[in-house]
């Protein structure tokens, strides 16, 4: 089956700069030919997004949900109205479809995770259940973050992140606490986040 498209013949609009591989995937998925559409759907979910969905499967759901279930959920979300969601992807400055979908998928599954936690609690019909389910996911995230923070070589970076993101101190308050300027706090926070992200990706248990 020849499923390849000459993407240069398709117009994505003046403001869209979509990579030809991503354009081929989008056009293939939206194809009116079911065989072609299925081919590109499988390519998107089982090749292009394999690493992303596997990370979500084990990082967010701790492996308690099957890969195919994640695919099914995201497929339903993205395929509404003939894949209208993909029209939001513009490919500005050569950003790839998989990068854009990484954000979409993480947000989608985070919201879905929160909703399912709430629903499970509602079935228990006590306020305590609702609270414990919501606290559970917050605790998971806090433990995950603090584990990485302990690995950060710059303790000042970890301290700023904790003061700002956990205790909710403003940059102005932190500047007073650390006896520095507000703009320096913003600089430290930026470097701290970048260091955190880097270490987060190097953990052995990821």
């Amino acid at each position: 089956m020849n499923t390849r498209f000459n993407t240069s013949t398709f117009l994505f609009g003046n403001k869209r700069q979509i990579n030809h591989i991503d354009a081929e995937i989008i056009l293939g998925i939206k194809s009116s030919d079911p065989a072609i559409s299925e081919f590109y759907v499988k390519r998107l979910f089982y090749i292009e997004l394999k690493a992303l969905l596997t990370t979500i499967q084990y990082s967010l759901y701790k492996g308690t949900i099957e890969y195919d279930e994640l695919v099914n959920e995201l497929y339903i979300h993205l395929s509404r109205n003939n894949w209208d969601a993909l029209d939001s992807y513009r490919g500005d400055n050569k950003a790839r479809l998989s990068t854009w979908l990484s954000r979409v998928a993480w947000r989608f599954f985070m919201n879905s995770y929160r909703k399912s936690a709430r629903m499970t609690s509602d079935e228990g019909s006590t306020l305590d259940c609702v609270k414990s389910a919501e606290i559970l996911s917050d605790v998971d995230i806090r433990m995950d973050i603090e584990k990485v923070m302990k690995m950060m070589p710059n303790r000042r970076y970890a301290e700023v992140l904790k003061l700002n993101l956990y205790y909710g101190y403003s940059a102005e308050d932190i500047a007073v606490i650390l006896d520095t300027t507000v703009s320096n706090v913003y600089n430290i926070k930026h470097r701290a986040v970048m260091q955190f992200i880097s270490i987060y990706g190097q953990r052995d248990d990821v």
């Binding site: 690493a51 990484s102 917050d138 806090r142 973050i145 993101l165 992200i197």
Partner: peptide, 14 residues
């Protein structure tokens, strides 16, 4: 922390 966790996961997935 949730914002940081989400960004770190998105970044590292990429």
């Amino acid at each position: 922390y949730k914002d940081l966790w989400l960004l770190a996961n998105m970044y590292n997935s990429c």
